[in-house]
Each structure stands twice: as structure tokens, then as C-alpha cells.
Nucleic acid binder design. Sequence first.
DNA 1: TCTGGGAATGAAAACGTTTTAAATTTTAAC
DNA 2: GTTAAAATTTAAAACGTTTTCATTCCCAGA
Lengths: 350, 350
Amino acid sequence: MTEPSRPQRGENLDITHKRGKPTLRTIATIAGLAVTTVSRALSDAPQISLETRQRVHRIAREIGYLPDRAAQRLKTGRTNVVAILLDPHEEVVGFTTSIMYGIAKALKETPYHLVVAPNFLSTTNAEAAEYIIRNHLADGLIFTRTEPLDARVRLLLEAGFPFICHGRTEFSTPHPYVDYDNFTFAYEATRRLIAKGRTKVAVILPPKRLTFCQHILHGFMTAVREAGIAYEVPEKVDLDTPADVLRDFVRARAAAPDAPDGFVCPGEVSALAVIGGMSDAGRTLATDYDIVAKETSRLLTQLQPKVDTIHEDLTAAGEDLGRMLLQRINNPDAEDLHLLLPPQINFPVG
Amino acid sequence: MTEPSRPQRGENLDITHKRGKPTLRTIATIAGLAVTTVSRALSDAPQISLETRQRVHRIAREIGYLPDRAAQRLKTGRTNVVAILLDPHEEVVGFTTSIMYGIAKALKETPYHLVVAPNFLSTTNAEAAEYIIRNHLADGLIFTRTEPLDARVRLLLEAGFPFICHGRTEFSTPHPYVDYDNFTFAYEATRRLIAKGRTKVAVILPPKRLTFCQHILHGFMTAVREAGIAYEVPEKVDLDTPADVLRDFVRARAAAPDAPDGFVCPGEVSALAVIGGMSDAGRTLATDYDIVAKETSRLLTQLQPKVDTIHEDLTAAGEDLGRMLLQRINNPDAEDLHLLLPPQINFPVG
DNA sequence: TCTGGGAATGAAAACGTTTTAAATTTTAAC
DNA sequence: GTTAAAATTTAAAACGTTTTCATTCCCAGA
């Protein structure tokens, strides 16, 4: 004769879930509460007694509960996702990675995830944005390299879709942005060249269609005019020009009698190309000419320690982008979501 | 007396949804079918008549229907998400961006999205993976820079969680991977130096803990032994060494009488640092010494056209990673999910 | 005429959460 | 000791799918 079977350990409490993951019901069963109450308690609703709230939080922690994103998203209509438009073009070393890293940092303690939406999903980069809006694939959008009348900005403003961009525009409607103070960068860079005694300065501009091209030009020209110094703005090359083409251009230019002896370079690779071109022409950095470059990684100063640099912290920018986008998402009327990050000047005492 | 109000246009069909987005019910109402049938028709179930299937597809297309990811995810338990562990360390220019771009390309026509899971979510990089598994935040995981007994691989294998990595391991259990043939890279690079008449070759190795360090060393040593040539393997520096430190090291080394006159550099920045160091020591590239470098962007050849390079296509690798991970997700028994990408040799005819 | 069976469609439940509205308990006031 | 009000808690519906099971329809075979 065998013993009559008894309830196994834990059999009386039906807290094991189909897929094995604890849910609100698991907690409700353990706590002897309704699912509703548990949901409320976890979101710290004021009408739930403090004692219950604490107890529910404790249980949740103990069994490793984590809310199901799909269910939340289905119910609330919020995706808890922030998307970034990935630009295949990367003129700055580690540009995208640094920004993404910063965004991820800002999202760290929030329920938000970062998803990557490559631009090639569509022919124009505004179409990628449209796709995301139309199908509500994210709660907010981040992108970089703005143009004065950026099609993405226009679209997102019209749709009232939360976004923030790295770079400014010229729309009359204000919108959130984080930008680097490229005016001051160019102004200080140019002044540094002048202070070092250079007699003719040149600047490698970003592509003309980008907003910050004007900022750089403006900063450069302001310093030039203040000092009444000779200058030149090459038309045939820009920051996106392949390094070898830029190098050849600089070499050819250096051979002429009225060649510039000071360069403002808003990118590390272009700075290296300029140095290469000048070197091809027999000119020595810091002796025959000088460069002030924008530095976003350690690359340039590691390779050419003699270059004066002004730093742009892209990870910090990413962090601000993430933080401010969340503000915009959670409070559509939030104002002053504008940030102009100051250049960090690294000139040695010399 | 006013006209009695009539049904407005479209008022008779209740196809407008709360959130405005068309759902299965919208299509069902239009087609005069049940939601079930519509769902089936859209997934091309054989028991639905061909005519109905076509009709439903057509309506869906016309009203711009897109399935709600949250609802699908909730119901099926599949996230339709692929995650990539973002490594803050980026020794190769554009490494992460290129790979991500390739992955996104592979995911393009699929329902999958790419989300970025930064490693700093946790202290060790295995913890980030664990977090993703435990809370089922993705259907599959991608990561790079493997170690022979990589903790992430061990964890994921034990959990039976779909993943693929860039780089191999030494686990006896096979697992999906995409890797670059670094043995052949190093072997061919070394042979090139020898063919050019160099008499003592050196290699800058990756950090020792990474699997591909051994592959490079092996390829290098094989070529060295075949030729019976002098060689050296610097212990104090590696690919992750800051460029200025590496440069100083090379300069110091070049000053000694038994300095190498041929370098294998598996990274572009380190190649530039070596060139810088040799230049500091008064040595001229292609005359006094040679370099064969791994090239993953256009950076190196643009700046130093005289360097022999062997190309590694990281975007292609990303595309393979994405494609093969989807295979693994959809068929857990899929075999031969291994890919060793061949080096693309760019030596000029000289 | 009836029956069985295949082809096509449909009803209803479920995934795990949030939210509206209602029910219950406790406290305070008389 | 009522009773109204305040403080908690709960039931039930809903978000948009997928899936199990049932139903309808039509026709072949008896």
C-alpha cells in the first residue's frame, strides 16, 4: 500500500507561469492581492497604502520581476523606444559610436531602449523618419548633421512627433536641439593662429548644405575681420572630401606664392590630410605653418602632438540628446530644450 | 426647416480606429471577413482560398496596414528584435558603425529591428548578455571581439539563446560565428614584406586575451619560419596601445642597431603610429622600411598611399552576422553557421 | 434524401499590462 | 451606534494579435 499522494512543495501556490517569467499575477498571488493593486503599487500610485506598496516592491525585487515591454506597449501605446537615424557617412572618427554611447548612457536607468534605424530604408533621409512616425516604431527620434531647412525637421514638426537633433536649423518654429558652438570654435581657432603670428589663414569648411558650415565660416570671418588679416576659403574641398584629394589640393596650394600658413580644420582626418599635404610641399608643422583642429577622439593628438586642438565631446552631446529627448517625450510643452555645448580649448601654454 | 442629418461620408463603416492606425479589424470590416480570416490570409495560410488571400493583401496594402509589433510580440513571445552589445572600446576606425550598418542591411526586409545594448549596463560584459536573456529583450544577440573562453559565449550556449559573434572561440561546442581570416592576413602580409626584401619583420599584436591574437601570431610565425627570416614580436605594446605610446616605442626601437625594417599592422591607427615613430627616427617609408596594414576604412590609404594594405570589409561581415543570426533564430538546428571571410589583398603591381 | 467529409471561415480565448468604474473597508463625525 | 466620507482595494474591459476549436457550406457517395 502506497501513501496517498500529497501536494508537492509549492504546488498549492500557482505562481509558475507558462513561459516561466514572473508577471503581475505571480506577485498578486504571492501577496494575496489583485493584479490591479500590484500594478498600482509598482507605479507608486498614491491611493495604495504605503505598506502595501513597499511589500509589493519587495516581492517584485525578490522574484526578479520585470514588466513585459510588449504588454505595456500594447496597452499604453508607448513604445519605450528611442530611434536614431544612422547616417552611413561618417566624416568624424567614431562620430556615431560616441553619440550612441552617450545616448545609451542617458537611457540607462530608464525603460527606454535605443534602436538603430538606418537611412537606407528609404531613398531620402526624411522617408526613414516618416516610416517611423507612421508606424509609431518609437516614441522619439534623434538624428545628426542638420541642414538649415532640414526635411526631417519639417516633417517631424508638422507631425508633432518628439525629436531632437544634433545641430541647428533655420525654421521659425523652435525645436529641441543640441549643438556644438562651432562659431566659438572657429573664432578661437582663428585667433590662436593669428596670435601665433600667422599671416594668412584658411579654413576647411563642412559641406555647404549643413547648418554648421555657416557657423564655422562666421566664426572664422569674425576673427579675420577683427584682426584685418589675409585669409582664404577654399571652394573646391570640404570636410567630406576624401583625404587624398584634400592632401593633393593642399600640396598644390602650398606651392603657390600666396599660400596660407594657418589652417582651421573642423575634423581630425582633414587635419591629418592638411599636414600630409603641407609635408609633401616641404613645410614643417609649427615652424612653417600652424593648424588648429577640432578633436573628437584621441587620434589626432596622439599622432600629431604638435597640433593645437579644441575638443568636442560627442559622448557628452549624446548624453544630452538622450536626456533632453526624454524630457520632450514626457512633457510636450517643455521649453528651452536647447543646448549649445562650449568648445574645450586645449592650447598648451606655449 | 432643416434637412434631416444624413450619414456623413464613411460614417456607415466603422473602420476608424481609436489610435487612428488601421488594424486587422479595419481590414476585416472592409472585407466583410472575420479578424481570424484576415490574420490567416496575411500570413498566407493554405486553408484560406487564394482569392480571399489576394483580396486581403490588396486591402492591407491600400490602407497602409502594418502589424502592431507589440501585439505580435505579446501573443507570440517573439520580440522581432536583434541586440548588439556595444563595445565602448573601438580600436578600429568605424568598427562598430560599419558592423551595425551591415547588420541593419541584413535586417532590412525582415520584421527585425536592431537595438543597441551598451555593455556598461553591467560590470562585466557577460552581465549585459545575461540581462538580455533573462528578460527576453531580444530574440538573438550579436557581439564582437571574442576571447578563447569567452564568458558571453559560455553563458549563451548554456542558456540555449541564439547568438552569433564576430570572432572565434575555443569551446568544444560549436556555435555560429563570422570571422576574418587573420591567419591568412598575417601570413600574406609577412610574405609581402619578405618579398620586398626586408630582413627583419615585426608584428603589432592585438591584446593577448582576444582570440584573433593567436591567429595573427600564427600566420606571422608561419611565414617567418618558411622564409627563415629574423623577426620580433614586441611585448610591451599592442593594438590597443594609445598611438602616442606606440609611436614612442617604435621611435626608440628604430634607434637600436637590430631594429626591424618590416611591420605587420592589423589596424590603421597603429599603422599611422608606426609610420610616425619611424619618421621620428629618420626612416622613410618604402625606402628604409615597409608596412603591410589591415585596412577597414579609406583612412589609411588616403593618408599614406604608399602603404600596402589588406582589406577587411566590416560592413559585409555585419551583413553576414545579421543574416546568419536570423537563420539561427528561425532554425535552432541550423548547422554550418560559420564563416571565415577572406582577406582582400590590395598590393600594387610593383 | 440523407450522410460524411473536405474546404473555407468564424467565435472566443489568451498573451500581460493599464485603466475605468465599482466595491469594500476604515475612519471620522455626530 | 449610526452614517457619511475618505481610504483602499478590486473586477472587468481593453490594447491588437495568434491560435484552438468549432461552425458553415457544398458536394460526392450511398
